[in-house]
């Protein structure tokens, strides 16, 4: 999936798949916190309608 969305043009870091057992509470919190922090750092998704429209109009114009 990471490679597919990367091919499509989405930062693969925006996707994370981890196995966390129900017995691993602290690990779960850590995994989620780290991912949220990472996404904050990367910024808003380019798939949000406004961002995407701008990109497409540039491509069409070119």
């Amino acid at each position: 999936m990471k490679k597919l969305i990367e091919f499509y043009g989405i930062d693969p870091e925006r996707l994370s798949l981890k196995w966390v057992s129900s017995a691993e509470g602290p690990r779960f919190a850590k995994v989620i916190t780290e991912f949220v922090d990472k996404i904050r750092e990367i910024g808003p998704s380019p798939l949000r309608p406004k961002v995407l429209m701008e990109a497409v109009s540039v491509e069409k114009a070119s």
């Binding site: 091919f7 989405i10 069409k60």
Partner: peptide, 22 residues
Amino acid sequence: SVQQVLAKDLDSRLAFWSAEFD
């Protein structure tokens, strides 16, 4: 064709595919 897309950066890929899919 795959290499051609891979040669683009992420933003160009997204713009390329979005325009195609549209």
